[in-house]
Every structure is written in C-alpha cells, then in structure tokens.
Nucleic acid binder design. Structure first.
Lengths: 160, 160
DNA sequence: CCATTTGACCATCTTTGACTATTATAATAC
DNA sequence: GTATTATAATAGTCAAAGATGGTCAAATGG
C-alpha cells in the first residue's frame, strides 16, 4: 500500500499543478484521507519544507486555512539555501550587509528594500542588553531573506 | 467561504471609498449580513483600530450611528514620531501588523515592503528562547520604520 | 531503528447572546 | 408649559461557544 503520506503529497502536488500556490482546509483534507489532521502537518513538514522549496502559511479559527507556496526560482534555485546556510544560527552585521548588497546587485531587491534589510540587521536594531546578538540577528535576517524570495515568487505569478 | 468578518470589512471599505468617513447603523448592517450586532464591533475592533488608521465615533439611542473616520495624517515626520511613540520599547505582533497595513493602505510602502516589515516583526523571527520578545520586536521594528520614512524622503528628492 | 500515524491537549480567530449603557421621544404630573 | 418619568431605539461589553489549525509524544509498522 502506498504510504498515506505519499498519497497526500501527490494529492497536494496535483492541486498545485499549474499554479504556484494552493489553499486547503486541514480538517477537510484529513477527512478526505480518513486520517488524523496532524497527519497533514507531518506531510507538510517532511515534503513541503523550505528545503523542498515550499513555504507554508496558515491561519486558525473560523475560515482558517493552510496555504502552500512553491518557490521555484528559475536561475537562482538553491540560492536561498546557500544564504540560509551561510547565516546559520548566528551571523554578524557585516555578513548581512554583504548579502544584502549582493541581492541588490542581482536586482533581486530594490534599493528601498535593501535599506530595510540593513535596518533589520544593523547594530542599532539590536542595541539591547542581551548577549548573543548575532544569534538574534540571524533569526530575524533569516526570516527577511525567506520573505524576499517569497516576494519574488509572488511577483512572478501575478500582482496583488 | 469568505469569512463574515472579511466581507463586512470589505463592505465598509467600499462604502468609504472616495471619502474619509462613513456613518452606519450597527443593527442595519448586522441585519444585512444576518449576524449578531456585536459582530460589527468585532470587525471594527480588529480591522478599523487606531493602529489601522481609523477612528470610531458613535452614538446610542434613537438616531444612533457608528461613524468610521479615516485618520488624517500629520506631516510624514510627525507621523513617524507618532508611530515610534506608539511602539515605545515594547510592542506586540498584532500592533506591528496593524501599523504595517496602515502604511500599505496609505501607499507609503509597497506590498513587498509590507511583507518585509511583517517578517521582521513576526513571531517566527523571534522564535528564540529569550524573554521580553516584545522589547526585542520593538527595537527591530522601530529601526525599520525609521528606514521606511527615510526611504520616502529620498524618493521625494531623486529616484534611484 | 526509522518513518509514519494517531490522539490528547493547546492556540487562535470568529460568532453569538445575554446583559448593560445611552439617547430620543412619548406620556404623565405639576 | 415645564419637569419628570416611562418607553423605545440604539450602541457597547464581555464571556462563552464554535471553528479551525499546531504541537508533541506515544503507538505502530516495515
């Protein structure tokens, strides 16, 4: 028997075929496959992770949903991974600045956006009495980078 | 199914389009949407708060009404001051999101930039084993806001 | 042993309803 | 006619119920 997880993975990929994103109801999907809702999370975590090129967004409560966004970057596939790896869980300001100007040179972000990234990674933003500023900077900057790539993905599709 | 709250939000925004304020009858609106009157208050509280850039006035009794007024902006530098003060040295995610959508609605930032601000303020970015996340968020978000306004200043002068 | 599956418990967002507060208008008292 | 008192017409508040999705650890299966 094909693994349940595999079937669910297939099902989701079919739903996505043609588009770069799909919204679904976790509970409905689980019911469709007659499994526990958390099974869906398992599939998402193991087959639709960032490493696989997907980003998951969701919302709880009435009208809640799970949105799966594919980030297949044509010429820069894997670039995000490289950057994230470079950052790891600790990074200094200089490295963030370098990465940012690199993105700018590649026209992956605008000048205004570059300034925002720099602002987020600057010493200034983290002028707090806490240790491990680099760890903190990495957490924030990582999130921004992921968003940069997601933005590119969305622009490719259509504009909102 | 579009959330009731979302529909009501849309409806109100359409009513406002073009003007800077609109008056409505809470009960009539509720009846129009077939919901409890207090549902309207929920929508106002979650989508038309001060942080979102709106002010609500109302009056009870015969001839009562609810008036939604789009806040008038002070000079942009004054606006920045207001926002910075609002943030202080500690701010929650919800407030940052509201401020961001306010900036977006006023065309002070692009959709892509809004996503960056949200990414920087999100729970995700601060998923660290540290306390006082709100303090940290405030430090980062404040810096981004300052940059947003600086960017606007520069664009006004010349384009890059 | 490792990947998968499930279930109990948690978090978040929305919707409703009972109760409260305020204002205008009608009725009554003087 | 004016002051006072009901009554009706609104809106506000808050807590409970409903509707989703998330997490994590135990159970299961290959």
């Amino acid at each position: 028997m094909a693994q349940l997880s595999d079937s669910i993975e297939q099902f989701i990929k079919e739903l996505m075929s043609g588009g770069t994103q799909v919204d679904l109801r976790r509970n409905e999907l689980a019911q469709h496959f007659g499994c526990a809702p958390s099974q869906i999370n398992y599939v998402l975590a193991t087959r639709f992770s960032l490493d696989h090129g997907y980003i998951i967004e969701s919302r709880r409560g009435g009208g809640g949903y799970v949105r799966i966004v594919r980030m297949q970057l044509p010429s820069s596939s894997g670039f995000l991974d490289v950057l994230l790896e470079r950052i790891g869980n600790s990074v200094d300001e200089e490295t963030c600045m370098a990465i940012t100007s690199n993105l700018l040179e590649r026209n992956m972000i605008t000048g205004r956006e570059a300034k925002l990234l720099q602002a987020a990674a600057s010493k200034n933003a983290l002028a707090l009495p806490i240790s491990a500023k680099n760890v903190l900077r990495a957490a924030v900057f990582r999130n921004l980078l992921i968003q940069v790539f997601k933005n590119m993905e969305e622009e490719k599709g259509d504009d909102v």
